[in-house]
């Protein structure tokens, strides 16, 4: 039984069957990639996992508990963190303040009226946030407005904000989309490091095969809302069904 179990999930938008009978099991400690051509339903699936969408039928359980009907912040508090396709950070806040948000969220839960305390006195939490920034080599930028960071730094900050929560499952939505080759490689290194050092379970949606094959332990191929195959990377590479899904049903 995996840490994340998706069973018979269907999702329909009007006449479009976005997801049809999706089954997926992410094992603890692995990196599970979900790939597929445009419109395959990858993002819809991800949105069903984090509470943004609710599937029409089927179940999604995390550590044996259903996540369906829960709000995104409740699901996050269960231990699922999400990295977005375009980095979602608090642009008006400084880098350090960005890092403090997940730190406070972990200590205080979804809401606490701490209007009379002072941030400067929260030494322990500040240390934790600064320690994490140091690990991603951004400590010297801690007083910068995060909106003025480069895209690569924004991505690193977002990743650091997820990691400082010590999530049980990290969801990555095309973490290298629109990146230059060098940046992509940096991100791959960062993710590899996360995987090896912290042993965090990851589910990654990706277009870039280079990224997928460098990171994934298992790959699920999605096409037109249904999983085609699920296997280890070596077996996916030459799989005829995968080629067909990506290249179209050409008569060779």
């Amino acid at each position: 039984m995996g840490i994340l179990e998706v069973t018979d999930v269907n999702k329909r938008f009007g006449g479009l069957q976005a997801l049809g009978k999706v089954n997926l099991s992410v094992q603890e400690g692995t990196c599970h990639a979900i790939i597929g051509p445009n419109g395959a339903g990858k993002s819809t699936l991800l949105n069903c996992l984090v509470g943004k969408l609710i599937p029409d039928t089927g179940t999604v359980t995390f550590e044996g508990q259903s996540v369906l009907g829960r709000k995104p912040y409740e699901i996050n508090q269960m231990g699922i963190s999400r990295v977005f396709q375009t980095p979602e950070i608090f642009g008006d806040l400084t880098v350090l303040e960005n890092m403090l948000m997940p730190v406070f969220a972990r200590r205080d839960g979804t809401f606490r009226l701490h209007a009379y305390e002072t941030i400067a006195n929260e030494r322990e939490l500040l240390d934790e946030a600064e320690g994490m920034l140091d690990e991603v080599n951004m400590l010297d930028k801690r007083h910068m407005h995060s909106a003025s960071l480069s895209r690569g730094d924004k991505r690193r900050l977002e990743m650091a904000m997820c990691l400082v929560q010590k999530p049980k499952l990290l969801l990555l939505d095309e973490p290298t989309a629109g990146m230059a080759r060098a940046d992509t490689n940096n991100t791959i290194d960062l993710l590899k490091e996360i995987k090896e050092k912290r042993n965090i379970t990851m589910a990654i949606i990706e277009h870039d095969m280079h990224v997928v094959f460098s990171l994934a332990d298992r790959i699920t191929v999605l096409a037109q809302g249904t999983p085609l195959v699920e296997d280890i990377p070596e077996n996916i590479k030459g799989h005829p069904k995968v080629r067909e899904a990506y290249l179209g049903e050409a008569q060779v």
Binding site: Y73, N76, F90, G91, F104, R112, A115, T118
Partner: peptide
């Protein structure tokens, strides 16, 4: 209030509510 964690949360509301929600904050 401005200097409290609560004040920080309020500024975060203004900045990015989606990220706030996915950071476990209501």
């Amino acid at each position: 209030l401005f200097r409290s964690p609560f004040g920080l949360m309020l500024r975060a509301v203004k900045s990015n509510q989606a990220r706030m929600s996915y950071t476990g904050l209501n």
